[in-house]
Write a protein that binds this DNA or RNA. Sequence first.
DNA 1: TGACATAGTAAACGTTCGTACACTATAATA
DNA 2: TATTATAGTGTACGAACGTTTACTATGTCA
Lengths: 196, 196
Amino acid sequence: MVTMPRDYFKDRIEKIKEFYLRNKRMPSYSEAAFLFGFRSKNAAYKLIRKLKELGFIYSDEKGRLLPGTLNNPVKLLGSISAGFPSPAEEELQDTMSLDEYLINNPTSTYLLKVEGDSMIDAGIHPGDLVLVDKSVIPKTGDIVVAQVDSEWTLKYFEKRGGAVYLRPANKKYPLIKPREELIIGGVVIANVRKYK
Amino acid sequence: MVTMPRDYFKDRIEKIKEFYLRNKRMPSYSEAAFLFGFRSKNAAYKLIRKLKELGFIYSDEKGRLLPGTLNNPVKLLGSISAGFPSPAEEELQDTMSLDEYLINNPTSTYLLKVEGDSMIDAGIHPGDLVLVDKSVIPKTGDIVVAQVDSEWTLKYFEKRGGAVYLRPANKKYPLIKPREELIIGGVVIANVRKYK
DNA sequence: TGACATAGTAAACGTTCGTACACTATAATA
DNA sequence: TATTATAGTGTACGAACGTTTACTATGTCA
């Protein structure tokens, strides 16, 4: 029986990953054979069958290859204070896609750039991007996009005894009790800050 | 001459988008024809040629369709304090992918879950996910993942007169002057917080 | 040693692919 | 009204597709 070296699969997966990132589609079997350095596309066919069993790849009803966990661009390490594993060691790590992780409802979610410091105590800074889902019904404690005095702002949503209040996360600003009807643009489901 | 209704393209694009999200690949021309309700795939062929000109789709050297701006899952609205356009109006908005926006170097970037409150004044809370690029060389003011007393922590990086310091973003904790060699696990390039 | 599982080669199949060409129907324009 | 550009139908063709089968070579294990 022939046993393959330890990183046999990893190199192959990396090749496909590169192809996928470069071409934005999965290779055909003959293209995969070329990637792997095989002369026969059946060799690729058999190899990929194993990658499928490992979950890196799958295929649709027509046999075309689709990205499995390949798709996920960022590697997952442990948590920071727990003495997480050294970033140096390159294993077959778990990966994830930020898009898929953060966005539940692609059609009802949009992105908003934050200006002003009214939510700074909630860790939402000017310049941050805020993901807003307008299909979510706000509950007390949620951060919402609301229209106050014909201006859109970011506030904590509070419902007490039938009345609705908007609370800024900054002691400098007062609690807001909306005069008339309150227009909600959606609930903040995530906050993203880019440094570089 | 036949002029198409205003949202002619938008509906078609939405159909392809749905297909792409569902199948994780672009449709063939015959599949696209079926999506559009055409009997002839040549009709899809001509229509998609126009979508290509608009940048929503393109194709590789073998003619296979590839996602253009389709790919991007989240719609971009204006900024929040500027009285941004109502989220209700559904135009052909700009879209973006968070993965592509945040990650410059997929191979050297990883994700870390934050525990502890040492960076809370920088708006990085316990439970946040931090994107770390280990190929970036830290500069003063950057937030880095560093090993202090054989523990991995998140600190501001400061270089003054040849000496390197690590500063927590929380007044409760003291400035750290590393005794021996300083091990840096990478530079924080983004912070992500998920609420829902 | 002999039996066996595996990695890879090679060729063949029916199907689907992208693309091209000829054609019809419709609506706008001059 | 005649002209013209466009939306869509239908057919055809060579190339590439996924999949199957047969075969070789090689290393493992009893």
